[in-house]
């Protein structure tokens, strides 16, 4: 069985062409990357603002409640609404991207919010006391200090999106999920397992890349034991389910 899956994976013919692995991988990365980018552009400023101002915290609570909705249900509801309103590929792509953006937002919001709001009150007090303006406190103190939690939110969002992009194949879009859905339809378990290995590998690689990026970007002073403890405590906040 494992040998079969391995042969399927290394067969050069499976990698080429419009339905080849390379193309599917690219599609998967496109959907996921675009969705996380859009979600980050919307969610990070909102989360940081709520954390800084300490107002409108209900937005975080509402976003967290969204996580209880099964992503499969969300995907189908949005797809059904769009299918009669859009033509061609857009009828599947637009709802997919929308759902992925919606699912990426809660961990990003929570990461930015808790990252900023958990900045040591003494550091914030000192920053104002030294004559920093609100903007300076946010950009020079709060956001750099929030980076570990912003990153953990980003990683959760990326995993959530990669997972959900996989099941989005069930509404006829591309990506690696195709192998799982098509393999199931054709009763071809080898294809399904091969696709599953690819999806799992993609998730692990993306998470690894983001972890490496985090090490590069996060200031060294925030990587000590104490902040690691704080990060762990807050990780439950940003942790997304691998729902997909």
């Amino acid at each position: 069985m494992i040998a079969q899956v391995w042969r399927w994976l290394v067969d050069g013919a499976h990698w080429q062409g419009g339905t080849g692995i390379a193309q599917r991988l690219l599609e998967h990365l496109e959907y996921s990357g675009m969705s996380v980018l859009i979600a980050a552009i919307i969610a990070l400023p909102i989360g940081a603002f709520i954390g800084h101002a300490g107002r409108a915290k209900w937005i975080i609570a509402v976003a967290n409640a969204f996580r209880a909705i099964p992503s499969l249900g969300l995907l189908f509801v949005v797809a059904m609404w769009f299918v009669s309103r859009l033509q061609g590929d857009a009828a599947y792509l637009v709802p997919t991207i929308i759902v992925l953006v919606i699912l990426a937002m809660p961990p990003l919001l929570a990461g930015a919010y808790s990252g900023v709001s958990e900045v040591d009150p003494a550091a914030r007090d000192a920053a104002y006391g030294m004559g920093m303006t609100h903007r300076q406190v946010l950009t020079r103190v709060e956001l750099p200090c929030a980076l570990p939690l912003i990153f953990s939110g980003l990683r959760s969002a990326a995993l959530q999106v990669i997972a959900t992009a996989t099941i989005a194949a069930s509404i006829s879009v591309g990506g690696l999920g195709r192998y799982l859905i098509d393999g199931l339809a054709n009763s071809d378990y080898t294809e399904m397992a091969g696709g599953a290995v690819l999806v799992a590998a993609l998730a692990l690689v993306v998470d690894g890349v983001l972890a490496a990026l985090q090490r590069l970007v996060v200031p060294g002073g925030l990587r000590t034991a104490r902040s690691a403890r704080r990060r762990r405590r807050a990780s439950a906040v940003t942790q997304a389910s691998p729902t997909g």
């Binding site: 494992i2 599953a196 799992a200 997909g244």
Partner: peptide, 17 residues
């Protein structure tokens, strides 16, 4: 946390192996 990274559909599909 590595295991947590694997998307659910993929994990379901890989279980039989």
């Amino acid at each position: 946390s590595l295991l947590y990274t694997i998307p659910s559909l993929a994990l379901f599909v890989l279980m039989p192996i």
